[in-house]
């Protein structure tokens, strides 16, 4: 069976679901961030697969570059917030952080 667009789409669907599972179930905030990275990678696979098979030339790849840029910005900000949370609460477990202010 020839590898076509559907193979890449199903790969990205499974990767997206794994990332979603990680975001929903993990207690540690850093692992939630890792789940978000998996989800962004799944979206990028879709963009580039459509860019290759969907006749969109390079537009999909250009948008994938923007996704990577935003993922980098998101990781930097989110880790700064997580470090602050750790300073305040001495834990990064998202189920124990239930106060906006101490």
């Amino acid at each position: 069976m020839q590898i076509t667009l559907t193979h890449y789409l199903i790969l990205s669907a499974i990767l997206f679901s794994l990332g979603l599972y990680g975001v929903v179930t993990r207690k540690n905030a850093i692992l939630v961030l890792m789940g978000i990275e998996l989800i962004l990678n799944a979206a990028n696979i879709n963009f580039i697969a459509f860019s290759r098979y969907g006749g969109m030339q390079l537009d999909g790849q250009a948008i994938a570059v923007f996704v990577i840029i935003l993922a980098a910005a998101e990781a930097a900000i989110a880790l700064a917030i997580v470090l602050n949370i750790y300073k305040q609460f001495k834990t990064v477990n998202v189920d124990e952080i239930n106060k906006l202010k101490e």
Binding site: E37, N41, S51, A72
Partner: peptide, 25 residues
């Protein structure tokens, strides 16, 4: 998928940047 630039950018930014940040975190 014939996306060589994105592949290299993926390795540089994700592995070199984001993963380093996460491990430090």
């Amino acid at each position: 998928l014939n996306a060589d630039f994105i592949a290299v950018a993926q390795i540089l930014i994700y592995v070199g940047g984001i993963l380093m940040l996460l491990v430090f975190g």
